[in-house]
Amino acid sequence: MYPATRPDPAASMPLRFPASAVNGLAGTSFKPGHLAAIVAEGAQRGFFEVHAENYMGAGGPPHRALEAIRRDYQVSLHGVCMSIGGPAVLDPLHLARFRGLVERYQPALVSEHLAWSTHENSYFNDLLPLPYTAATLERVCDHIDEVQESIRRPLLLENPSTYLVFGESTMSEVDFIRSVARRTGCGLLLDINNVFVSAANQGFSALSYLSDFPLSHVGEIHLAGHARQTDDEGYPLLIDSHDGPVADAVWGLYERVVEQCGPIPTLIEWDSNIPRWPVLKAEAAAAQAILDRGSFVRELRRAAV
């Protein structure tokens, strides 16, 4: 495990990019098609998230675009293929490339999913769920320890969107996540849309889930859109699609979390049917307004004590 008290070797190195805090800021997924519009605006409030796997080549247009963004903004590095929950050992080449991106771009936040996506030599285009058992807990903790030791900093672990429940699970998802955070010292990425999708699909209360969630460990929040479908038996089914605006119900849950926890850095995910930059920027502005209001209310409460 990478203890929080261990000196960061990067601290003594000259920064290649500006360092700035993302506390209290809202950001968006970075899409290269938006680069010209973002640069034309000049530096603004906010930050951008990038998927690590899109930048694991040595150079080329992806890196030129990301370097242009990184000159004015902090970034959040979000992994999608580490397969933290998988039964196999972590791919050492993938982990080395991931570590290289952390060193190269010095992201403000680094995260991965509580999921698995590989089997032997196969990579799946899905973030697959896992049973919540003692054996799975041990494996996930070992993998997180390995990642944190490699990148020399804490990792944020994201709660999944789920569509089924494993019969062999012996603990709830929240209890599992709480145990992982306690044992590894990792932080958490709370995806509120994932909570809403899972709650709707499985018939539990999203508010109850959030009231039990270890919010004190949350270092970042994700918001995204979802799609409404029906399953083979005609029952409603929500899909974590990231292809539209954040739903009103998800905004409502987000406001409750901010009221309780304060202005946690928040990222708007929009990964398909990507709109023009002003549309995505407006979603981030809506999140920023909630963060700013939460900061103001907390300051008023402090002043009244």
Score class of each variant (00 low, 15 high):
residue 113 H to M: 09
residue 198 S to F: 03
residue 114 L to F: 06
residue 168 E to M: 12
residue 131 P to A: 12
residue 106 Q to H: 08
residue 122 S to V: 15
residue 196 F to H: 06
residue 77 L to R: 01
residue 77 L to I: 10
residue 201 N to K: 01
residue 191 D to G: 10
residue 183 R to C: 01
residue 123 Y to A: 12
residue 191 D to R: 00
residue 73 Y to H: 08
residue 105 Y to S: 06
residue 149 E to K: 09
residue 96 A to N: 12
residue 76 S to R: 00
residue 131 P to G: 14
residue 185 G to N: 09
residue 96 A to Q: 12
residue 156 L to D: 06
residue 156 L to H: 03
residue 74 Q to D: 13
residue 165 V to D: 14
residue 77 L to G: 03
residue 111 S to I: 05
residue 71 R to I: 10
residue 192 I to E: 04
residue 163 Y to H: 13
residue 100 G to Y: 00
residue 138 E to F: 01
residue 163 Y to E: 12
residue 102 V to D: 12
residue 136 T to H: 09
residue 76 S to Q: 02
residue 178 R to P: 08
residue 108 A to I: 05
residue 145 D to K: 03
residue 93 L to A: 15
residue 138 E to L: 03
residue 178 R to A: 14
residue 144 I to K: 01
residue 129 P to M: 09
residue 193 N to D: 13
residue 103 E to D: 15
residue 192 I to P: 01
residue 123 Y to P: 10
residue 125 N to V: 11
residue 170 T to P: 07
residue 120 E to R: 13
residue 154 P to E: 09
residue 78 H to L: 07
residue 119 H to M: 14
residue 87 P to F: 03
residue 110 V to S: 05
residue 177 I to D: 07
residue 118 T to P: 03
residue 124 F to G: 15
residue 72 D to P: 04
residue 107 P to I: 06
residue 120 E to P: 03
residue 118 T to D: 14
residue 98 F to S: 04
residue 159 N to V: 07
residue 72 D to N: 11
residue 169 S to N: 08
residue 94 H to T: 11
residue 180 V to I: 14
residue 112 E to W: 01
residue 138 E to T: 06
residue 128 L to G: 11
residue 179 S to A: 14
residue 172 S to P: 06
residue 144 I to Q: 02
residue 117 S to P: 06
residue 73 Y to R: 01
residue 70 R to K: 09
residue 80 V to I: 14
residue 66 L to V: 11
residue 114 L to H: 02
residue 149 E to Y: 04
residue 132 Y to R: 09
residue 197 V to I: 13
residue 65 A to K: 00
residue 169 S to R: 00
residue 174 V to F: 07
residue 127 L to P: 10
residue 175 D to I: 04
residue 124 F to P: 13
residue 127 L to D: 15
residue 125 N to C: 12
residue 63 H to Y: 13
residue 167 G to E: 15
residue 103 E to T: 09
residue 94 H to Y: 15
residue 65 A to Q: 04
residue 180 V to A: 02
residue 116 W to G: 08
residue 68 A to I: 05
residue 82 M to E: 13
residue 184 T to E: 05
residue 195 V to T: 14
residue 98 F to W: 06
residue 85 G to L: 00
residue 75 V to W: 01
residue 192 I to V: 14
residue 112 E to L: 04
residue 79 G to I: 02
residue 100 G to L: 02
residue 170 T to K: 05
residue 121 N to Q: 14
residue 101 L to K: 06
residue 143 H to N: 15
residue 137 L to Q: 03
residue 150 S to W: 01
residue 83 S to T: 11
residue 191 D to I: 05
residue 94 H to F: 12
residue 65 A to Y: 02
residue 131 P to T: 13
residue 193 N to T: 14
residue 135 A to P: 07
residue 177 I to P: 02
residue 82 M to R: 02
residue 93 L to W: 07
residue 101 L to C: 08
residue 192 I to L: 15
residue 143 H to A: 14
residue 71 R to V: 11
residue 199 A to T: 02
residue 162 T to W: 04
residue 78 H to V: 08
residue 87 P to A: 14
residue 119 H to Q: 13
residue 73 Y to V: 13
residue 100 G to A: 10
residue 91 D to R: 02
residue 146 E to D: 12
residue 154 P to A: 10
residue 174 V to P: 06
residue 182 R to S: 10
residue 67 E to V: 09
residue 155 L to N: 04
residue 80 V to F: 08
residue 76 S to G: 08
residue 199 A to I: 03
residue 160 P to M: 00
residue 135 A to W: 04
residue 169 S to V: 08
residue 81 C to I: 12
residue 113 H to Q: 08
residue 190 L to D: 07
residue 126 D to R: 10
residue 78 H to S: 09
residue 93 L to R: 08
residue 77 L to V: 12
residue 149 E to C: 11
